[in-house]
Simulated assay, not measured.
Amino acid sequence: MVARFEDLAVWKRSARLSAELYKSLRELKDFGFRDQITRAGLSIPSNIAESYERESAKEMTNFLNYAKGSAGELRTQLYIGMDIGYIEREAGMQWIKEAEEISRMLHGLMQTIRTQKT
């Protein structure tokens, strides 16, 4: 298993997705929506990082599960953002696809941790 969260592909991808959201939505005047969607995006790599600073497999998987939940929250907000015209459809669908892949990667990582630490 990878010793540092910075070396995880899932952390790198989720951090890049979060940065893309911030850059793309920085001009959005609906501050409530912008704040909510960027927080959801930021929560994914943040919880992955926090999981790697925990001692037990249970704590690690809990924080990875929070990250996975944030990926679902982000997908919901992306769909709504596209429906109300805040997010261009092509970009939104790319971000949704990336969030889905990140969720799958997190699921696999949680399975690995559960089997290695038991």
Rank of each mutant, 00 (worst) to 15 (best):
M105P: 01
R54F: 10
Y52K: 07
R89M: 12
I37V: 03
K12W: 04
L8D: 08
K29G: 11
V2R: 12
T61R: 03
G69Q: 01
R75A: 05
T118E: 12
R39C: 06
Q111M: 15
I84H: 01
L42K: 09
E98R: 15
G32K: 13
S18D: 11
K58H: 08
G69C: 04
V10T: 15
I113G: 09
K58A: 14
I80H: 02
Q94C: 11
T118L: 10
V10A: 10
G92H: 03
G92K: 00
L25S: 06
A49L: 09
M82W: 00
T115Y: 04
K97G: 06
N65P: 02
A15V: 07
P45A: 04
F5G: 12
Q116P: 05
A15R: 13
M60S: 06
Y79R: 01
G108V: 09
E50A: 10
E59F: 12
S51C: 12
E53K: 07
Q77L: 06
L74F: 15
Y52S: 04
R104C: 12
A40L: 02
D35N: 14
M105E: 15
A67K: 04
L17P: 03
M110H: 07
M1C: 09
A49G: 08
R26S: 09
Y22K: 14
I96C: 15
R39F: 00
L74T: 09
I84G: 02
Q77H: 00
S56W: 14
L64Y: 09
E55G: 13
T61L: 07
N65A: 15
M82C: 00
E73I: 00
G85M: 10
P45G: 08
G81W: 07
L42D: 13
E20D: 14
F63D: 05
K12D: 01
K68N: 01
R13N: 14
E6A: 12
S18M: 12
R13E: 15
R34A: 00
R26D: 09
D30S: 08
Y22C: 08
S24C: 14
S70Q: 07
A19S: 13
L109D: 01
R4K: 14
L74Y: 04
M1H: 08
R16V: 01
E100Q: 13
I96S: 02
A99S: 10
E98P: 05
Q77Y: 00
M60V: 08
H107F: 09
G81D: 02
E50R: 00
E100D: 14
S24M: 14
I84P: 03
R26Y: 06
